[in-house]
Nucleic acid binder design. Structure first.
Length: 824
DNA sequence: GACCTGCTGCGGTGTG
């Protein structure tokens, strides 16, 4: 390897820190001249930040050397490096670490952040002149682009780093980043762009998306230092008394406490917010001596309450933090000794990400302790360990031309600088997501922005731009004001704020939860026991309380399905088990349950589709183990139920989980493979789905978010947000107007598309159906519920009856089952 | 004797 003087200086810096450079860091340095868009992927905590800065430093050294030898002019002033991060909470720490690496090399650039947290005066200054390095979010970048006085501030920009690109890639925020990059590249054609990412299955696509459509020289640089991951599971004393279903996992509380005892800092990850509340209370009640050293963190807790928790982790004053994905990324700069996962892993990448929160330093292994909430989760842990060992991981799929964001971005661009339509079209098409955007679609968007489209022509409010001298201009200053308040793609939920009378906000809960609580009743939230004082002006006023049996809130959140990769890996583990290859402790432990499944039915395997048929009182229950994840199953079960009722005069009750779905039918269905093959046919899938799912209701809800991103709905001034109801009313009105007068409206089309793709995972469903037809259908009649059927049955009766009798019925059924097993 | 669910993320005005 040849090292110029520049490389020597960089080597020297590593030496001064007592570090060895990693190969991939030097690879990035070597690729810099050749490559225009690159992607660095390495496990978390492996020095990606330094890797991204080395070429920037190298370039600056070259310029300085040239200037010193008199061959070049003065160095650029203003912004040279733009660093995009998805999380504003990371911006401050990123500023410091960039600053320190640069200073170490004798480069005294000014490094600043610009996010929503930045002070108003600094933001005002930054509109006109930027520091040498700016750390920002995709949203704040869009805002910068939207200010007329910012024209020119990117004129000295040399490189962009997109941090945590894997996190942005699969979302509209990623698409927004693509559009931002397309704009910056138009201004600076020679721009170098580097993405930093965790490992993904589709790295090639990830770099392609980052590069956009211009032919660009790209490279993928891999961190070769494999991170060591230790996955350990906790087991109950006996599988006999371990639940077959459920999600809380508190059965293993004592074991978890022992694990917490042995480390000074632990992160306890859960899968839901309400689970976080339950575990926080359980731990605090069991270890009162840890008072003040146990904290809770999730997305519905107010940011002001969360910040001290993050700080407590940083300074080591907290021993245990119970959290959701809210701390998946946010603790990059924090030393955590061990990580605990309560409940199923859901995905391979997800477990890796969480495990990576511990041992967050080169050379140190990551450890994660997995706590099953029910028996079959042990198979998931075995599967995820195997998948990691064989290098299998999920892809993240980028979005394709979302029209709501297109509409938003065109306005953003024209606010910053009035431009001819052709030029804007070309720029937008250079972003990967819009590479296939047709001129017709683009013209539709322009017409919509200028005149409100076909159906809103009469309303001036929807006319945002106008053409003058061949350029698109904002129609008024008002347009800019309202538009900037709506920039971004995250649409917030409909939750009710929870406040003390003093005015301090604790966070927010679901309206459906708080409406069940009467004043005087006690519930837990944000780790506190609270009493509802009154519900007034869409706000829940509470005071601290003590009380037994407090209610635990639940939220209407996302329902992360088991990933396809992990579902396949689970089936493979069952196959291993069937072959007698019990090469993990998890499989050995769960053996009694799997044996019972195999004895009373069969084990579902990769090449079979198991359908169980059980008579429960007067109904026939059919359990289909399709292993498609709960979202795809929700679509599938609706479809199957609909097709059944088309053929038979029957009432069908359904339930789903990640492994399969269940139909309870009050008539006899044929127990032969041909019938099920037909019922599960993939013909007319989309049309049938839209028909049977009451799709317009789902689309209507999805449309609300689309209308907000497209700037059709103003959701209120900061600090004085409109209520969910108000937003709902105006979005519904628009939906109805479009449906009536302009059914081909591209935003309606997008709403349907998003329902199919995001809420029902149509692509996965389609693949699933194809896979089903290549599998052998095996129908087994069972006398009793099997271990795999039990959770689906319990899930079904949850929707049927009150919680009191739910408990009774589950207990009764469990007792019945356990009597059988002792008798057997 | 088993059990009640369901993630995250950002940003903004203007006038007295």
């Amino acid at each position: 390897m040849h090292f110029s003087g520049v490389h020597e200086r960089i080597r020297h810096w590593f030496h001064s820190k007592g570090w060895q450079p990693f190969d991939f860091q030097l690879d990035v340095l070597r690729e810099y001249d050749r490559v225009e868009t690159g992607l660095v992927h390495a496990p978390t905590g492996m020095g990606k930040t330094v890797a991204a800065l080395l070429p920037v430093i190298h370039h600056e050294f070259q310029l300085r050397d040239a200037a010193a030898s008199g061959s070049d002019g003065t160095p650029d002033s203003g912004l040279k490096l733009l660093w995009i991060t998805p999380l504003r909470a990371l911006a401050g720490d990123t500023v410091h670490s960039i600053q320190s690496v640069l200073t170490g090399h004798g480069i005294d650039w000014k490094v600043e952040a610009r996010t929503g947290d930045t002070s108003a005066s600094r933001k005002a200054r930054q509109r006109k002149a930027l520091p040498d390095v700016l750390v920002t979010t995709p949203e704040s970048l869009s805002l910068l682009i939207s200010y007329p006085e910012s024209t020119g501030i990117f004129n000295g920009l040399r490189s962009v780093v997109v941090d945590e690109w894997h996190e942005l890639l699969g979302s509209k925020r990623g698409t927004q980043t693509e559009l931002g990059l397309a704009h910056l590249r138009r201004r600076r054609p020679a721009l170098k762009v580097w993405g930093l990412s965790a490992t993904l299955a589709n790295l090639d696509l990830a770099v392609e998306v980052l590069a956009g459509t211009h032919p660009r020289k790209t490279a993928i640089v891999s961190g070769r230092h494999e991170k060591e991951i230790h996955i350990e599971s906790l087991f109950p004393d006996s599988m006999d008394c371990f639940p077959w279903a459920g999600h809380l996992g508190l059965a293993l509380l004592d074991r978890v406490l022992e694990v917490l005892d042995r480390a000074s800092t632990s992160l306890v990850f859960t899968n839901t917010r309400s689970q976080t509340e339950s575990w926080f209370h359980a731990i605090r009640d069991a270890r009162p001596q840890w008072d003040g050293a146990v904290a809770i963190h999730h997305g519905s807790i107010d940011r002001k309450e969360r910040e001290p928790v993050e700080q407590g982790l940083k300074d080591g004053s907290l021993k245990v933090v119970v959290c959701t994905s809210s701390l998946d990324l946010g603790v990059d700069f924090i030393p955590v000794e061990q990580v605990i996962q309560i409940g199923g892993p859901k995905g391979i990448a997800r477990l890796l990400q969480r495990a990576g929160r511990s041992g967050h330093q080169p050379g140190r292994p990551s450890r994660i302790v997995c706590v099953p909430a029910h028996s079959l989760e042990l198979v998931e842990y075995a599967a995820v360990r195997r998948a990691i060992a064989t290098g299998r991981i999920e892809p993240r799929n980028p979005l394709e031309k979302p029209f709501d964001l297109l509409v938003q971005h065109v306005v953003t661009l024209c606010l910053g600088e009035p431009r001819p339509a052709d030029e804007i079209f070309a720029e937008i098409r250079s972003a990967w997501a819009y590479r296939d955007l047709t001129r017709t679609e683009f013209d539709w968007a322009l017409d919509f922005i200028q005149f409100g489209g076909k159906s809103l022509r009469a309303y001036k409010d929807y006319s945002r731009l106008m053409e003058e001298d061949g350029k698109l201009h904002p129609r008024s200053n008002e347009v800019g004001k309202f538009h900037r308040m709506g920039i971004g793609t995250i649409t917030s939920d409909t939750a009710v704020p929870v406040k003390f009378k003093s005015g301090k906000t604790l966070g927010s809960v679901e309206e459906s939860f708080i409406s069940r609580i009467r004043p005087g009743q006690v519930f837990i939230f944000s780790g506190r026991t609270l009493q509802l004082e009154k519900f007034h002006a869409n706000t829940a006023y509470v005071r601290a309380a003590s009380g037994k049996k407090p209610g635990v809130p639940s939220w209407d959140g996302g329902r992360t399905p088991l990933s396809s990769q992990l579902a396949d890996a689970v089936l493979e583990q069952l196959e291993c088990f069937a072959r007698g290859e019990l090469d993990s402790e998890e499989l050995r432990q769960v053996a009694p349950v799997l044996n019972r499944q195999a004895d009373s039915s069969i084990l579902p395997l990769p090449d079979t589709l198991l359908i169980e048929n059980t008579r429960i009182r007067r109904s026939q229950s059919w359990f289909v183990y399709a292993f498609g994840g709960r979202l795809a199953h929700e679509g599938l079960v609706a479809l199957v139920a609909w097709r059944i009722t088309e053929q038979f005069k029957a009432t069908v009750v359904t339930s789903v989980n990640d492994y399969g779905f269940h139909l309870s039918v009050n008539c006899d269905l044929p127990a032969d493979a041909a019938f099920w093959n037909e019922i599960l046919g993939s013909e007319d899938l989309e049309a049938d789905l839209l028909e049977c799912l009451n799709a317009s209701e789902m689309a209507k809800r999805q449309f609300r978010e689309i209308a907000r991103v497209a700037g059709l709905i103003f959701s209120g001034y900061p600090g004085a947000r409109k209520s969910a109801r108000q937003v709902q009313v105006s979005s519904q009105l628009l939906y109805e107007v479009f449906s009536r007068y302009e059914p081909e409206h591209l935003l309606l089309d997008q709403a349907r598309r998003e329902v199919l793709q995001q809420q029902l995972e149509i692509n996965r469903l389609r693949q699933l159906l194809e896979k089903i037809h290549s599998r052998k259908i095996q129908i087994v009649s069972t006398g009793k519920l099997t271990p795999m059927a039990f959770p689906l049955w319990a899930e079904m009766i949850r929707g049927e009856i009150s919680s009191e009798s739910w408990t009774d019925r589950v207990r009764k059924m469990a007792e019945e089952l356990s009597r059988d097993s002792t008798a057997a």
